[in-house]
């Protein structure tokens, strides 16, 4: 019984979390930098300072074909080998929380 109650409380908390207006005020953020050594590092996060660890990252070529797929590490970073041609980086923290960064805008 006790367990059931805590499960219910947990479920209510999770539900409540998604309903809180704070959620509306948290915008996804993702900036990528050319490390100058053939690699690119993307830093993800949210405008309220919450972590983006585990958020999915996709690197796609100019035609939208997926080249690299991974997740933000514990420091909300993802480093990958810079693709040869046109590319873009998609930071996907769920619906309404997606960001695409064009490779042309990624500089040192």
């Amino acid at each position: 019984m006790k367990l059931k109650v805590s499960v219910l409380i947990f479920a209510a908390m999770v539900f409540g979390f998604f309903l809180t207006p704070v959620c509306q005020a948290h915008t996804p953020l993702c900036s990528c930098y050319d490390n100058g050594d053939g690699s690119v590092t993307c830093e993800g996060g949210f405008s309220d300072g919450s972590s983006a660890a585990g958020v999915e990252i996709r690197v796609e070529d100019g035609t939208g074909k997926m080249l690299i797929n991974g997740k933000m590490d514990d420091d909300s970073e993802f480093t990958f080998k810079k693709p040869a041609g046109d590319y873009k980086v998609a930071f996907d923290a769920g619906e309404g929380h997606e960001i695409t960064v064009d490779g042309k805008e990624i500089t040192e």
Partner: peptide
């Protein structure tokens, strides 16, 4: 003497720390 310990905070990209 005067010694002024000084701070300035610069943010990049809007993500707080």
């Amino acid at each position: 003497y005067i010694q002024q310990s000084t701070k300035v905070i610069v943010n990049v990209g809007g993500e707080p720390g």
